[in-house]
Simulated scan of single mutants.
Amino acid sequence: MSKAFIARVIQQSTEVTGAAANRATNDLIDAIVKEMKRTGKFTLPSFGTFTVRKTKARKALNPRTGESIKVKAGKTVRFKASPVLKKSV
């Protein structure tokens, strides 16, 4: 799925222009990101939950050279599908 796909679905279902659908898509994605930054999660009922998780600093291996490298601590996003989504797929 891409932003263009979402914009096309919005355009077809609401009968707005392509530019308006693109703005709506960007606004939707921005709102989801803001909510995840603010609360650490975002839930779409009947679809699933996106959760922000912290990752610890760790050592890893460079696959080309086999050299040990340090990976900094950071954040990642996890998704857990709802039972409704799992059942429908």
Rank of each mutant, 00 (worst) to 15 (best):
A57E: 13
V89K: 07
P45V: 10
M36W: 02
D27K: 11
T17H: 05
A81Y: 09
T39I: 09
I32G: 01
T55V: 07
S88N: 11
A24C: 06
F50W: 09
K75S: 11
V33Y: 00
G48R: 11
T25N: 01
L61K: 15
K72H: 04
K34L: 08
A31M: 04
G18C: 02
S88G: 07
A4Y: 03
I32P: 00
S88C: 03
A81I: 11
T49S: 14
T49W: 13
F5N: 11
K75L: 12
V33S: 07
M36Y: 05
T25W: 02
V33F: 01
S82T: 14
V16L: 13
V52M: 12
N22R: 10
A19N: 08
R8D: 07
P83V: 14
F47R: 11
A24S: 04
I69D: 08
A60T: 05
I69K: 00
T14K: 06
V77L: 06
K87E: 14
R78P: 01
L28S: 02
I29G: 02
I6A: 11
T43L: 12
P63Q: 10
T65H: 09
K54F: 03
L28R: 01
M36N: 10
S88P: 00
A20H: 07
S46R: 15
P83E: 15
V84C: 04
V71A: 03
E15N: 08
A7D: 04
I32L: 04
S82R: 08
G18H: 03
S2I: 12
